[in-house]
Simulated assay, not measured.
Amino acid sequence: MSAQAFWDVAAPLIAVTEKHPFLVAMVDGSLDMDSFQYYVVQDALYLHDFAYALRRLGDNDGISRQDSERLHAFAKGAEEAELSLHNSFFKEWNISDDGVEQMPHSLLYTSYMKQVVATRPHAEGLAVLLPCFWVYMHVGQCMLKLRQELGDSVQRPPQFDAWIDMYGGEDFEHEVKDYIAMNNKACQSADAETLKNMEKHFLTCCKLEHMFWDQAQEQMQWPVIA
Rank of each mutant, 00 (worst) to 15 (best):
M1K: 15
M1R: 15
A3V: 09
A3C: 13
A5K: 15
F6R: 04
V9S: 08
A11P: 11
A15R: 01
V16A: 04
V16H: 04
T17A: 08
T17I: 07
E18S: 00
P21C: 03
V24A: 11
V24E: 08
V24K: 13
V24L: 08
S30C: 05
L31C: 08
L31W: 09
M33Y: 09
M33Q: 11
M33C: 04
D34C: 07
F36P: 06
V40S: 05
D43K: 03
D43A: 04
A44M: 02
D49T: 01
D49K: 04
Y52G: 00
D59G: 09
N60W: 10
R65E: 11
D67Y: 02
E69L: 06
F74E: 08
A75V: 00
K76I: 00
A78T: 06
A81N: 12
E82N: 08
E82W: 01
S84G: 06
L85W: 06
F89K: 06
F89D: 02
K91I: 02
K91C: 01
I95G: 01
D97T: 03
D97R: 03
V100A: 11
H105V: 13
Y112T: 09
K114L: 15
A118W: 01
T119P: 10
P121E: 06
H122G: 00
G125R: 00
C132L: 03
V135W: 05
V135E: 01
H138S: 03
H138M: 09
V139K: 14
G140L: 08
Q141V: 02
K145R: 14
L146H: 04
L146I: 01
Q148S: 12
L150Y: 05
D161Q: 13
D161G: 12
D161F: 02
A162F: 05
W163S: 06
I164H: 07
D165R: 13
M166K: 14
M166H: 11
M166R: 14
Y167G: 05
G168K: 11
E170K: 13
E170H: 05
F172L: 13
K177S: 07
A181P: 12
N184E: 15
C187N: 10
Q188L: 15
E193N: 15
E193Q: 15
T194L: 14
K196I: 01
L203A: 14
C205D: 07
C205H: 10
C205G: 01
C206T: 14
W213D: 04
Q215I: 02
Q217T: 09
E218Q: 14
Q219V: 05
Q221P: 13
W222Q: 07
